[in-house]
Every structure is written in structure tokens, then in C-alpha cells.
């Protein structure tokens, strides 16, 4: 186990820069999730930590060592790949023991470690099978087994659940989290799925366009997104964002006026953010026209037209409204996010 430090990391392919100076501190034993849309550079960054991509500028440290020029094998890391990358011509046991075998471990030691990992992951009965004889979830477990066998300083996961169906994904999410709690190894996990990030991470790093947008604990990011990008990326359905002006009378967006919490300074070019669950139905409030009603059972998701804006509300109660009806919305004044429309930065 070791902390991982990224200091002003840059990466270019030829003259095309893809990472523009990344600084991240990962504490010993922490579970950090790198999340962002595809092409944001999160996988590249993970592969740089692994040593599969070279570092253009800056320093990567694992423990006390700067590892920029070390081969992957000398970094004491283990990686789980998106498509598992199990060696098709080797049995599960050989796959899992492969790295130990090439680090000069004895037969007895390899067998002991493989059995230990197999017991943790419930792979005992599958040890003699070949990868092609396994289901998707089993392959995923073997890939994890291969990583933990060696007891590395750092685990790296590259979108490990994206090839699984929705149900299995939830199960494996729990297993990975459980494994981390049991072994306590520093983990860096890449995903484009913000739900995975929210549920698994100790700390989330939101990336966009080769830059870090925000670093923080999941609920901190949810409650106080530092900018419009994070606000829109974290949370599903996404936060409603309405452009307009902050005035003494409220937030003016076209013909619509939205209530503001007290003590907000005026701004001409702003964005009003409110999460769907922070809108409630009230007898008096901002009038909105129902466009689409989607009952989910536990809650009801409603798409509404607010002047020229479209917003989504999620309500605990079961709504009987028909499209075209007018309802009245009451935003939770403690959960309003205000952003600068030009810079995207948070105002309140």
C-alpha cells in the first residue's frame, strides 16, 4: 500500500496535448475514481500511472519513488482491463499465477497465493477452466483475482464493468468495493459512469478535456459542484440549468422569475441550477406546463416547460397530471446553485 501523487502531469501525442497539467494526491489506502466523458483523458492518465503510456511532463510518484521511467513491472501495481485481457491459452489458475511465476516465486508460494485469491473471489471450482469457458462475471472475477494475487501497492481499474449487463454491474460494484474494504489497497478506478463513481469512491476526480474540474468526496461534489460541468455531470437525471440574470427581485429567465435565497449578489450573466428532486409541487409557486410524465414506481419523473426552458422534476408523490396541465413548482431555496454563465464557476 502506498500513496500516489501526480504532480503537473502533461501528455501530448506529437503536438496534440491531451492532458494539461494534472495534480492529484491519492492517500494511502484511498479509493479514488476518475470520472468524465469519453475523451477526457482519464484512461490515458490511468495508463500513465500503470506505465503503459509515457509521461510527457510532470512527475508520478508511487510511495516515495518517482516512477516516470520505470517499467510497469517495477512499479508494483496491478491492473484490471476493460475487456479483462485474460490470456486465452492459459487456465484460470495459470492466468492468476502468471505474474508471480515471472517474478521468480516458487510453485508452492504461487499455489498458496492463487488459492487465497480464489477463495476470496469464489473462484475455487473454476481454477482449471479456460477463459472461453467462463461467463462475463466470472471473467471479471478472474481479472480481479489476477490483480490481487500479487498483493501490489496500487490497484488500477480501467472501466472494468462496462462490458457487463446492468444487473451484474451492480453486483460487481459491490464486490469491488467489498474487496477494497477487506484489502485496503490504494485504488484508482476509471469510469464514465457517474453512478459507479458516486457509489464506490472515497474521492472522485471529475475530468473534462484533459483537465481536472473538481476533486472531492462524492456527496461534496453532489452538494456543492464547483462549476457547471461538474453540476451537469454528477447526478441523474442531470441538474436543471437555466440561463438568466440575478436581480434583487429574483432570478429573471425570460418571462419567468425564480426565487433566490437571501444575500445573493447581482449578476447579469448567470445560470440557475436546481436538481430535479429539489423541486416540489405547491399550491402557489412558479407555474409550469407538464410535457411528459414518467412514473418509476418509487418516484415520478416529470418533464415540464417553464417559459422557454425545459426542466425535469422528480417527485415522491404519484402525479395524476396530464400533458398540457399547469402545475406550480417550489424550488428548495437551500439547494440552489448559481454559476457564472461565462466561466462556469460557482457564484454562491
Amino acid at each position: 500500500m502506498a500513496p500516489v501523487t501526480l504532480k503537473s502531469i502533461t501528455k501530448s501525442y506529437g503536438t496534440t496535448p491531451v492532458l494539461h497539467g494534472i495534480d492529484i494526491d491519492i492517500a494511502d489506502g484511498e479509493f479514488v475514481v476518475l470520472v468524465g466523458p469519453s475523451g477526457c483523458g482519464k484512461s490515458t492518465l490511468l495508463r500513465m500511472i500503470a506505465g503503459l503510456e509515457t509521461v510527457t511532463g510532470g512527475d508520478i510518484s508511487i510511495g516515495a519513488r518517482v516512477v516516470n521511467d520505470l517499467e510497469p513491472k517495477d512499479r508494483d501495481i496491478a491492473m484490471v482491463f476493460q475487456n479483462y485481457a485474460l490470456y486465452p491459452h492459459m487456465t484460470v489458475a495459470t492466468n492468476m499465477g502468471f505474474s508471480l511465476e515471472h517474478r521468480g516465486a516458487g510453485k508452492a508460494e504461487i499455489a498458496e497465493r492463487v488459492n487465497w485469491a480464489a477463495d476470496i473471489l469464489g473462484l475455487r471450482p473454476l481454477l482449471d477452466r479456460y477463459p472461453r469457458q467462463l461467463s462475463g462475471g466470472q471473467r471479471q472475477r478472474v481479472a480481479m483475482g489476477r490483480a490481487i494475487v500479487r498483493n501490489p501497492q496500487v490497484f488500477l481499474f480501467d472501466e472494468p464493468l462496462s462490458n457487463l449487463d446492468a444487473k451484474l454491474r451492480v453486483v460487481m460494484r459491490g464486490e469491488i468495493k467489498g474487496l477494497h474494504q477487506r484489502l485496503g489497497v490504494t485504488t484508482v478506478y476509471v469510469t464514465h459512469d457517474q453512478v459507479e463513481a458516486m457509489t464506490m469512491a472515497d474521492k472522485i476526480v471529475v475530468m473534462n478535456g484533459g483537465r481536472v474540474e473538481q476533486v472531492g468526496a462524492p456527496l461534496d461534489l453532489y452538494d456543492r459542484p464547483a462549476n457547471l460541468f461538474v453540476a451537469g455531470f454528477i447526478g441523474s437525471p442531470a441538474m436543471n440549468a437555466i440561463a438568466g440574470r440575478i436581480t434583487a427581485d429574483g432570478f429573471m429567465a425570460g418571462d419567468v422569475t425564480l426565487p433566490l435565497p437571501p444575500g445573493v449578489s447581482r449578476a447579469d450573466n448567470a445560470v440557475y441550477g436546481i436538481r430535479p428532486e429539489h423541486l416540489s409541487l405547491a399550491a402557489a409557486g412558479v407555474p409550469a406546463i407538464v410535457k411528459l410524465v414518467e412514473p418509476m414506481g418509487s418516484e415520478t419523473q416529470v418533464t415540464l416547460t417553464l417559459g422557454e426552458h425545459t426542466v425535469i422534476g422528480v417527485f415522491r408523490e404519484r402525479l395524476k397530471s396530464q400533458p398540457g396541465e399547469t402545475v406550480h413548482l417550489q424550488p428548495d431555496l437551500t439547494a440552489i446553485h448559481l454559476f457564472d454563465a461565462t466561466t462556469g464557476g460557482r457564484l454562491n
Partner: peptide
């Protein structure tokens, strides 16, 4: 960048 990260000596045989 050169000013804020002191250059380590890189080995000749890089990856």
C-alpha cells in the same frame, strides 16, 4: 514548467 519542477536526471534507457 522547468522552473517549478526541478529536472531529475532521466536514465538513458527510457521505456
Amino acid at each position: 514548467i522547468a522552473a517549478d519542477t526541478p529536472r531529475r536526471k532521466r536514465p538513458f534507457w527510457t521505456i
